[in-house]
């Protein structure tokens, strides 16, 4: 199993979180589980470090939180994306697209002069 360097996903954590919360409101543990499952455990971040990120996103107005009883009957702190957060998500997706395209251009050199050397 490949584990991605924490620094690498660090910058895109908010993109991942906002994308997940765009689908439905979730509490911290749920977000971690979703990240793990969808990335086949590639994104196995230190779970506690999720909370400073969530609280930052809330401070910035991208998320808001509320306490609610979930399906298991246990009360949890849920996070919900705000309109401001949705705009931020679009912007971060755009940035990610620019970034990943650029990276691919550099590393995917088959069509590039260098690869023929």
């Amino acid at each position: 199993m490949v584990k991605i360097d924490k620094g690498l996903i660090g910058g895109s954590t908010s993109l991942l979180i906002l994308s997940l919360l765009k689908e439905k409101d979730m509490y911290g543990y749920e977000i971690i589980k979703e990240l793990e499952e969808r990335s086949d455990n590639t994104f196995k971040l230190k779970e506690g470090t999720l909370y400073p990120i969530l609280h930052r996103l809330e401070n910035e107005g991208y998320l808001k939180s509320y306490r609610k009883k979930g399906g298991t009957g246990k009360e949890r702190k849920y996070y919900q994306i705000t309109t401001k957060g949705e705009k931020q998500l679009i912007e971060e997706k755009r940035q990610w697209h620019v970034f990943s395209t650029s990276v691919n251009k550099v590393i995917g050199g088959e069509n590039h002069g260098f690869s023929t050397l």
């Binding site: 230190k46 779970e47 506690g48 470090t49 909370y51 400073p52 609280h55 930052r56 401070n59």
Partner: peptide, 15 residues
């Protein structure tokens, strides 16, 4: 799994 409590605490304090 939670990670380093000191690091989490410092980061939380910032927020």
């Amino acid at each position: 799994d939670m990670g380093d409590p000191k690091e989490i605490g410092i980061q939380l304090n910032k927020e």
